Amino acid sequence: MEIRHPMHPGHGKVLDTEGLRREFLVQNLFVPGSLKMVYSHIDRIVICGIMPFNESLELKTDRGVFGVDYFLERRELGVINVGGPGTIRIDGTDYSLDCKDGLYAGMGSREISFSSRDSADPAKFYCLSGTAHKRYDTQAVPRGKARELHLGSDENCNRRVIRQLIHPAVLPSCQLVMGYTELAKGNVWNTMPAHTHERRMEVYFYFELDPDQAVFHLMGEPRETRHILVRNEEAVISPSWSIHSGVGTGNYTFIWGMVGENQTFDDMDGASMDDMA
């Protein structure tokens, strides 16, 4: 397990490219037959990449890090599959997830394992976990049951569909909100005009990028913007003081996930172009 610590915005603005990538970029999430976990002390979010191959992989806890007997003793979990068909077994119940299907696992779920239906086309389970105070029912969320928002325009190069999988309008959770955004072909901008939300942090996971493509993820305070170059299947940890926008060399898809003080998707502190530097 890799552990990341919080950062003051005053420190963030003096980091060079290598420093920004070291603190905020998460790479190599999917290794065949492995489970990778990154624990950020920014709102204590956990980022996981799970790629079962020939055998199932079990989600276990590290008592020295979390101080609990099992991983979801005081946590909840959101999962979106970005690979081939797979299965998640939670306390003896199997949940099948195709690509872009999601799942919410409530606090108190003990035995959790992940498997691929076909090792020639392995599943890739992208997971976020936040702290929880109450148990809500575990349930799968097929992409067809997501709440959809159609935003943007071709004129502004940001026509996109937002699919909310773990959201109060879809199912109850303690604090985790999670879904993904698909940009239409020929559109490259996300979350512009930019914003922050002091009450919540966010993680962006970019995928469906060709090998020769990239996204320039914009971050930093509105008057102290920086960027991180992100490749396919890499994630960026975005603290609450930072904007989180991006522009790609082509269209792409990204998973967004938030934890914090509320679950209000539209609770944003806008940063107009006049506010940016």
Rank of each mutant, 00 (worst) to 15 (best):
G33S: 00
K36G: 09
G64E: 11
I47P: 00
L59T: 03
S56C: 08
F53D: 10
S34T: 13
I50H: 04
S56W: 02
D43E: 11
F53H: 12
H41I: 11
V46C: 10
G33D: 03
S40V: 00
E55C: 10
V46M: 08
F66G: 02
P52I: 01
P32M: 06
K36V: 13
C48S: 14
K60S: 15
V38K: 01
K60A: 13
M37E: 11
E55T: 11
D43P: 03
V38L: 08
I42F: 14
R63I: 13
E58Y: 13
I45W: 09
I45Y: 05
Y39A: 07
E58M: 12
V38F: 04
Y70K: 04
D69P: 03
L57C: 06
D43C: 08
V68C: 15
K36W: 05
V38R: 04
G49T: 04
V65Q: 06
H41W: 13
T61E: 12
G67I: 02
L57I: 14
L35W: 03
K60C: 09
S56D: 07
I50K: 02
H41Q: 15
R63Y: 10
I47H: 02
M51D: 03
S34C: 14
K36R: 13
G33C: 00
G67D: 00
G49Y: 00
E55V: 12
V38T: 09
V65K: 11
K36P: 05
Y70C: 01
E58H: 12
H41L: 11
E55K: 12
V65F: 07
F66M: 03
